[in-house]
Simulated scan of single mutants.
Amino acid sequence: MGYHTFDAGRADKLEDAQQRYRFLSAEELRWALSVDGDATVADLGSGTGFYTDDVAPAVDHVYAVDIQEAMHDYYREKGAPDNVDLVTSSVDDLPLDTGSLDAAFSTMTYHEFASDRALREVARVLKPQGTLAIADWAASGSGSDGPPVDERFSSDEATAALSQHGFTVEFEAVRPETFLIVATAE
């Protein structure tokens, strides 16, 4: 089961590029998604749209999904690109059509929504062979950045959960504080 969400009152912290790119660069995220310019993508736990902004120029459409309307308010004020729709929703009940996404990604938010229901829902909205990229805080990390270690998942736990829900893990990397998993839907 996932844990608490990021405090929207601290949203400015999510815009610190130097800090954020230490753990996942824009280039690595776009590589993990490997989608073309016609793709429709969802950012699961989009927050302020920091990584949404990195993906939006490379695709046709992005759904920025966040459970907190306050995060969308921040993103609106910052200026969301024209091809981004802000969707206030939990990941376990996405208001998107079945098979409507070419790809989805989660950047440092998997620990917030990880559940069987959420993974079933992500599998539902992805097209067959659609890509899911997850970069998150690793349970093996020190906890000096990100959430407390006891609120994190290991890469092994995440890959096992994905496999149980019909995903095939194509790539896995464990770093000192984070992991990156790229998987495809059935």
Rank of each mutant, 00 (worst) to 15 (best):
Y3L: 00
R10L: 04
D12F: 09
D12W: 07
E15W: 02
E15L: 14
D16E: 13
A17Y: 06
Q18H: 07
Q18P: 08
R20S: 00
R20A: 00
Y21D: 10
S25R: 00
A26H: 08
A26Q: 07
E27D: 13
E28Q: 12
L29I: 02
A32G: 14
L33M: 11
S34W: 07
S34I: 04
S34D: 14
V35I: 10
V35Y: 12
D36T: 01
G37A: 14
D38P: 01
D38T: 13
D38W: 11
T40N: 01
V41D: 05
D43E: 12
L44A: 08
G45S: 10
S46N: 09
T48C: 03
T52R: 03
H61L: 09
H61V: 06
H61W: 12
H61K: 10
V62R: 03
V62Y: 08
Y63L: 02
A64E: 10
V65R: 00
V65P: 01
I67N: 02
Q68I: 01
A70G: 03
A70D: 07
M71L: 06
Y74H: 11
E77L: 01
G79I: 14
N83H: 09
N83W: 08
D92A: 14
D92T: 11
D93E: 08
D93V: 04
P95L: 15
P95H: 06
P95T: 11
L96M: 03
D97A: 15
D97W: 13
G99F: 13
G99K: 09
S100Y: 07
F105M: 00
F105K: 02
T109S: 14
H111E: 08
H111I: 13
H111Q: 10
H111T: 08
H111S: 12
A114T: 02
S115D: 12
S115M: 13
D116Q: 15
E121P: 01
V122D: 03
A123T: 11
A123C: 07
R124F: 14
L126T: 03
L126H: 01
K127G: 13
P128W: 03
Q129P: 01
G130M: 09
G130A: 09
T131W: 10
T131I: 10
T131P: 05
L132W: 08
L132A: 04
A133Y: 14
D136T: 08
W137M: 07
A138Q: 07
S140G: 11
S142R: 00
G143Q: 00
G146N: 03
P147V: 12
P148G: 10
V149D: 04
V149A: 09
E151S: 09
E151T: 12
R152D: 15
S154P: 08
S155R: 07
D156P: 03
D156E: 14
A158K: 00
T159Y: 02
T159C: 05
T159D: 00
T159S: 03
A160G: 06
A160H: 11
A160I: 04
L162D: 01
S163E: 12
S163C: 01
Q164E: 14
H165V: 11
H165K: 08
F167D: 05
T168A: 08
V169M: 07
E170H: 04
F171V: 04
E172I: 14
R175C: 13
P176C: 06
P176F: 07
P176T: 10
P176S: 09
P176I: 02
E177K: 15
F179H: 05
F179L: 09
L180R: 15
L180F: 15
I181E: 02
I181V: 15
V182S: 02
A185V: 11
A185G: 05
